[in-house]
Design a protein around this nucleic acid. Sequence first.
DNA 1: TTCGTAACGGTTGAC
DNA 2: ATGTCAACCGTTACG
Length: 258
Amino acid sequence: MEPAFGEVNQLGGVFVNGRPLPNAIRLRIVELAQLGIRPCDISRQLRVSHGCVSKILARYNETGSILPGAIGGSKPRVTTPTVVKHIRTYKQRDPGIFAWEIRDRLLADGVCDKFNLPSVSSISRILRNKIGNLSQQGQYEKQTPHGPPQPSLPYNHIYSYPTPISAAGAKSNKTPNGLPTVNSYVTAPSIPPYHPPTPVSPYMGYSATTSAYVTGPTWQPASGSALSPHSCDIAAPLAFKGMAGPRQAIHPVSASVL
DNA sequence: TTCGTAACGGTTGAC
DNA sequence: ATGTCAACCGTTACG
């Protein structure tokens, strides 16, 4: 269960333990830094620990992305893209093939050795989840081992912001009623750019300050920064220029195919 | 005083 | 359907 309210840090800011700061704040941190504000001042102003400011800024400098890293999941240890590809081929050539036969073939064909040979149940799962109806394949093509570091934009209903860029983060995967909202942030422009200050925001400090809502011109991050080169079109994703570093800053749009 | 970072308690999600 | 576990989270405290 997600907490309805977060905890309060030493600076009076609200956070949810174990969860990333909302993108609105992450973005604000970067914006302020680009405006020349010192990290320690950003920390105080936004009531985010300096450790966190430091980390977000460092990551931004390194990857160009304000997004948190991919949380959870596990790397496929055996079901690499190559393996999946072979399994698909076997299945295409012989739709009636059994998982254990596929397993044997992977070994026989040298696709896997005995150490990385998927179990029969893994193969079954691949068949089920990644290949399924062979007529509509292809969606799983060329994924990095960990898949796209699915920017965990989700969650956020507890921090909901009225800032213009909230489009980038104000999205929850599972709505309270359990409806899986799909990629709402991609189509974010459809949401009204400005709700008046939300009364629900637990971020007291943030919403209280005058600078909080980055209203109007103020928020325009200087000259064509990486944040929003063009203020036109899709608001959200622009914040994430995709110079993929080691961490692979993936563009939210491309990351959310489905 | 500022800032980088390890330790910590926490959540997540592919397997 | 459920449990495991390695990934990431932000805060705190130390240097």
